[in-house]
C-alpha cells in the first residue's frame, strides 16, 4: 500500500470563534492527484491552509509524510501555491527572483546559491513556460502569468507534494493550459498533488479523486463527481480578477 502523504483526522477549525471545519478526514497517498471542491465558504481553502500549518487546528490531527505537523521540518518537500491574484509586492522583482524564493527551504543561511539551486530555479521557470520572461518584472505580467510564477516558485524546491489553493482563479485559458502541462509533468514523476479548485477546466483528466466539502463537512470522497455535483448549487457569483494587476508604489 502506498504511504500517506497527507493524513488529516477529525479536523476542527475555528476562525474568529466561528467553526469552519467540523471533524474533517482527508487522506492523500503517494502519487495521487486529489482536488477539493465546494462552494465559496465551504471550508476547502481553510482545509489546505490548516494542512500546511497556516491556520491552527482547534481539534484533530494533521500528519505530513507520516510526521505530525508540529514536528514536521522537511518543508522543502512541500510546494505551496497560496491563493493570490498577484505575485508582486511593493518593490519590483523579476520572475527569477520570485521563483528563487521557493528554493530557500533547501538553502542554508549566509551561503550563496549553489549551481543545483540555480538549475532548479531555471527548471521551474521552464516548467511553467516562462523561460523567455525570466528577467521581466512580475508586476508587468498578466494575471495568468503571475499565477504561473507562483507555481514555479512552489516547484523550485523540487517538492514531493504540491499544494495549490485555487491556482486557476481568474486565469486566462492559455495559462490554464500551461499550468495543466506543468502539472502533468510533475505527476508523471510519481509525485503528489492536493489542489483546491473552483472549476476543473483543462485539469479534469489529471485528477484521480475529488473531495467535495459543504459547510465544513466532507459530503463526497471518491471518483470525480459529475459536473452537476461539483458545486452544491449554481455559481452564485463570479469574481472579477481583471483589475488585480499589482502596481508598485506610484504605479
Amino acid at each position: 500500500m502506498r504511504a500517506a502523504v497527507v493524513d488529516v483526522r477529525g479536523l476542527r477549525v475555528d476562525l474568529d470563534d466561528r467553526p469552519v471545519l467540523h471533524g474533517v478526514d482527508l487522506k492523500v497517498v503517494e502519487g495521487e492527484v486529489v482536488t477539493l471542491l465546494g462552494a465559496n465558504g465551504s471550508g476547502k481553502s481553510t482545509l489546505v491552509r490548516t494542512t500546511v500549518g497556516l491556520v491552527p487546528a482547534a481539534a484533530g490531527e494533521v500528519r505530513l509524510f507520516g510526521t505530525p505537523l508540529k514536528s514536521f521540518r522537511d518543508w522543502w518537500r512541500i510546494g505551496y501555491v497560496p491563493q493570490r491574484t498577484t505575485a508582486a509586492a511593493g518593490v519590483p522583482a523579476t520572475v527569477r527572483e520570485v521563483v528563487a524564493a521557493g528554493r530557500l527551504a533547501r538553502r542554508s543561511l549566509f551561503r550563496p546559491a549553489r549551481k543545483a539551486d540555480r538549475e532548479a530555479v531555471d527548471h521551474a521557470i521552464e516548467l511553467v513556460g516562462l523561460a523567455d520572461q525570466a528577467g521581466r518584472s512580475v508586476a508587468n505580467l498578466s494575471g495568468g502569468q503571475q499565477q504561473r510564477v507562483l507555481i514555479a516558485r512552489a516547484a523550485a524546491s523540487e517538492p514531493d507534494l504540491l499544494v495549490l489553493d485555487e491556482p486557476n482563479a481568474g486565469v486566462d485559458h492559455r495559462s490554464q493550459e500551461a499550468f495543466a502541462r506543468a502539472l502533468r509533468t510533475f505527476v508523471a514523476s510519481g509525485r503528489t498533488v492536493l489542489l483546491v479548485l473552483h472549476d476543473m477546466g483543462p485539469l479534469a483528466p489529471l485528477v484521480d479523486r475529488g473531495v467535495v466539502l459543504d459547510s465544513g463537512r466532507v459530503v463526497h470522497d471518491g471518483p470525480l463527481p459529475t459536473p452537476s455535483m461539483t458545486l452544491t448549487g449554481p455559481p452564485d457569483h463570479h469574481d472579477d480578477h481583471r483589475e488585480d494587476y499589482g502596481a508598485g508604489l506610484f504605479g
Partner: peptide, 12 residues
C-alpha cells in the same frame, strides 16, 4: 517581505 505565507510554508 514578498509573501509571508509562502515563506512560512517554506519553513522560514
Amino acid at each position: 517581505c514578498q509573501d509571508e505565507e509562502f515563506a512560512r510554508v517554506s519553513g522560514l
